[in-house]
Structures are given as C-alpha cells and as structure tokens.
C-alpha cells in the first residue's frame, strides 16, 4: 500500500483520488431491484415495534451500519438532519445496526441524538437484503415500496440527497 516517496504528482493525485472515491450507486441485486423491499419487523432500541410495511407511501432510506464502522459514523448525522428536513415531505430513515451488542449502539444513538428508528440487525435480516457483508450499505425504497437503489460503502451524500429528493417528488401510490 506504500507509494514511493518519489512518486510523480499525477500518480499521487490518482492515489488520493482513489482513497477518496465515494461509493457508487450499484443496482440492487437482481432479486431486489424494482421489486418490493423485503418486509421485516424488529423492535427498536426503545422496544417499540418497527414494521417496514408501515412506511408504505413514504420514501425509506434503509441504512445498515455499525458503531465500529468509521464511514457509517460520518453518515449518520447527515441522515438525522435529513430526517428533520425531509421527514415532513415523506422521508423515513431507518437504521439497522450490525453490531453484535446493543450497548454501544444505544450510547452512540444518544450521543448523536438520532431521531429515527434504530433496530438491531441479525443474520436473517442481512440475508433478506441480499447479504450485508460490508458496511455501510444503504437501500433506497420508493413510495411504492420497491427497492430503487443499493449503495455500498461510504455514500456520496450530495448525490444520495439528490436521489432522495427525486424519490420524494414522486406521487404517492
């Protein structure tokens, strides 16, 4: 991973550009894209039942994350801001922690003052969404309940926000 000290400027530029390369929008796995988002119910950290079906008619940003995941921790405050800003227009952020233990999750949720449901993930939920084997991962679910996109890795938040706004502009089914 070391780059030679005498590397040319263009080489160094390319190296850092690669490091900074944001996640690209990947089509969801064939089995999910433009298909109904797999439904699930889980209790959130306060014990309240969260049912994905209850958000039908809203745009759902479903984010898989963990407390030990650096890029995830960068995204969460923006998602919290979007919940406040776009919630009245129909955006619902739903976060699934892939931590093994809820204690650090509770602490971080308090610290970041996250005002959206956070549930603990598990193997069946990861498998349901095509295998969540890298973090962060974000799914965009349209008002019609279908999966519109899957983002792997740290999101380009500007691009993601534009995408959310476009989905919010779609009519309710």
């Amino acid at each position: 991973m070391k780059i030679p000290r005498r590397s040319s400027l263009p080489f160094r530029f390319a190296f850092y550009a690669c490091l900074l390369a944001p996640a690209v929008l990947h089509p969801a796995p064939h089995s999910l894209l433009h298909r109904p988002a797999p439904t699930f119910t889980r209790n959130d950290l306060s014990g309240k039942l969260v049912d994905l079906r209850a958000f039908r008619g809203q745009v759902v940003l479903l984010n898989f994350w963990a407390t030990w995941c650096g890029p995830c921790r960068l995204e969460l405050p923006r998602f919290a801001a979007w919940q406040t800003q776009y919630g009245p227009r129909g955006l619902q952020i739903l976060a699934v922690s892939m931590d093994d233990d809820p204690a650090p999750v509770r602490a971080l949720v308090r610290q970041l003052n996250l005002d959206f449901p956070v549930v603990m993930g598990d193997q069946p939920l990861g498998t349901l969404y095509g295998g969540v084997l890298g973090l962060p991962q974000t799914f965009l679910i349209g008002r019609d309940g279908t999966v519109r996109a899957r983002l792997k890795g740290e999101a380009d938040l500007q691009s993601l926000e534009s995408r959310v706004r476009r989905l919010l502009a779609e009519p309710r089914p």
Binding site: W68, M98, D100, D122
Partner: peptide, 21 residues
C-alpha cells in the same frame, strides 16, 4: 462482526471476535 460471520464465512474458519474491542 458475528452477524457477518453468521451470514457467510470462509469454510472452516472460526469466529474470533472483533479485533477492535
């Protein structure tokens, strides 16, 4: 993560806990 391991892992591998903790 144990959740990752339980979704899929290298055959014969053993879950040994997150090294960051």
């Amino acid at each position: 993560s144990r959740i990752f391991f339980s979704q899929a892992h290298i055959p014969g591998s053993i879950y040994a806990g997150p090294g960051s903790q």
